[in-house]
Simulated assay, not measured.
Amino acid sequence: MDFSYSDEQRQLADSLRRFTDERYPIDARRKALRAPDGFSRDAWRAYAEFGLLGLTISSEHGGFDGNATDTFAVQFEAGRALLCEPLIPCAVMAAGLIQLAGTDAQRQAHLTAIAEGREIVALAYQEQDSRYDFARPSTVARTDGDSFVLDGRKVHVWHGEAAHTLIVSAWNASAEALSLFIVPASAAGVSVRAYPMLDGERAAEITLQAVRVPRSAMLGDGARGEAMLEAALERGIAALCASSAGAMGRLIEMTGEYLLTRKQFGQALARFQALRHRVADMLVQKELALSMAHLAASAIDVADATERRRMISSAKLIVGRAARFVGEQAVQLHGGMGVTAELAVGDYFKYLTASSLRLGDADYHADVLASLPMDPGTRALVA
């Protein structure tokens, strides 16, 4: 399989790298995290101008008809620069979900606004005590005339504080299934409590008390909400794997630079063989993570749901473990400096740690893989 960039993808990646090198140093990121919404609005407008926010949105709605490999090129650079804007929750997961399952009216109402940077949409699907299981939410949607009334509480809503619109999962008794609803964040009965996460990015707890939405707010088929939500999360996982691979690559570069300049016993640390071996181990893990991130991107277009799930969970599992290894090694090789604010290594370590937990940690995806039927190739080897 050819994972090399097309000319257009290379140009897009190069443009984003130039932007981040010139305008998004680590100090700018730290300042953005302290902003009211936890990210830079100026950067968000720049992403809209670059076309990043409408990358996978259809040209009919102001986008560029991109695919998962285009998203990979963007997210790799985003991870390399530790961009803290809601690219994945909004431009990848929410936009992809509306593009995939929305009605013409829903696409018209939201996709162009997302592509232009005027609207931020977040997924509200996780609940307390449910970990990563989203299949049977305690949030309920009951019919009342021509409306649905939603009651429940969502946690860990990634960039929920900045969202203008929420896509909320709820148990729909009338359909006896999980359904998804497009809910304005300003709707009566919606309350938001925001908080910072491990890496400084923002999340929110969303409470819905008798929130009334029209029937037209239901996203797609009310009986297929679980499958639609899973498809959105798979896109998010593929993007997150690419971002983590980019962050690992930059962290290794920073570690190499430090070892070349820091001296002990009159010579650079990079001359000590034991330390060189540790950097080599980091490179091996990064390359493994990069390969699995490519696998996750290629999985998005796989028609078979079981095989797609196997590929996505395998990637998330291996990338998460590699991220932890690379992050820990980088901190240790920087010594005491690795845990100070003077260097960016701590920011990267916290980002990689948080990313390994988002959208399912290693244990969760190991359980997913264990629950899937054995693929024919493995079955033949076992036999």
Rank of each mutant, 00 (worst) to 15 (best):
Y351K: 12
M282N: 10
A188M: 08
T139N: 02
W158M: 01
G377R: 15
R310A: 00
A344G: 04
Q106C: 03
A341K: 08
L275E: 02
A13T: 00
D146G: 14
L12S: 06
A28L: 10
A370T: 04
R321V: 01
R23G: 04
S174L: 01
L82K: 02
T139A: 12
L150Q: 02
F19W: 11
H156M: 12
D151K: 06
I237A: 04
I26Y: 09
L52D: 10
I237N: 02
L381Q: 14
W171P: 03
A95Q: 11
L208Q: 00
K286F: 10
A204Q: 01
K316T: 01
T143C: 11
T340L: 13
L33Y: 02
R309M: 05
G152W: 11
I114T: 11
L178T: 10
Q285L: 14
L166Q: 03
F72D: 00
S40N: 07
R379D: 14
V92P: 00
A187W: 09
Q209L: 13
M93D: 07
P89Y: 04
A274L: 13
R142M: 11
G336A: 15
Y47S: 08
D367M: 14
V190I: 13
A217N: 04
V213T: 03
W44M: 06
L55R: 13
G222Y: 05
I114L: 04
L52G: 02
S147M: 05
A227W: 01
